[in-house]
């Protein structure tokens, strides 16, 4: 990935899981409205926020993510009616659990972004990237083998 020969300013790798119906469309709208969000946010489109298995989040950390954000439709607006309600429970438990294991609470986040909220998408991403930048590199939930040679 990046080749750090001299110490550069830290730019975090962010993975954003976006549901197809709301948040991904929101990201699209942000793009077409020329609202910027940081380039280090890598979006992964998922059919529904509840498709995101905790192992996806951990896998992202393994591969070098410094922060993971999960975006879905606002509760009550799920395309599949109830998907995001399950997401909400799962992620509440998972985040609390990760923190229990000593992983920084702020590294993982859930945001609800509708298809009409291009501006909100941009704001959420900017804010998240800033928080993760302040938090620094992910060192506690990372696979050293992946980063070897960097």
């Amino acid at each position: 990935m990046q080749n750090v020969t001299e110490k550069k300013e830290f730019t975090p790798n962010i993975v954003a899981f976006c549901c197809n119906w709301c948040s991904y469309a929101g990201a699209d709208l942000a793009g077409s409205s020329r609202l910027s969000y940081p380039a280090n946010v890598k979006i992964i489109r998922v059919p529904c926020s509840c498709r995101v298995n905790p192992s996806f989040i951990l896998k992202a950390y393994q591969q070098g993510a410094d922060g993971v954000i999960l975006c879905g439709c606002h509760p009550g607006d799920c395309h599949y009616v109830t998907g995001n309600y399950y997401t909400r429970r799962r992620m509440s438990l998972l985040f609390s659990f990760l923190n229990y294991m000593g992983i920084e609470k702020e590294r993982t986040r859930v945001e609800w972004v509708s298809a009409a909220e291009g501006a909100r998408f941009s704001a959420v991403m900017n804010d998240f990237v800033q928080k993760i930048t302040e938090l620094g590199e992910n060192k506690r939930l990372t696979d050293l083998r992946v980063k070897e040679g960097e």
Binding site: R88, R89, M91, S96, K105
Partner: peptide, 19 residues
Amino acid sequence: TPLTSYTEGDAEPNDVVNG
């Protein structure tokens, strides 16, 4: 089970700290 059910007023993940 708790993970196969929900209520509309469930807590938001970002607001849950230490359970």
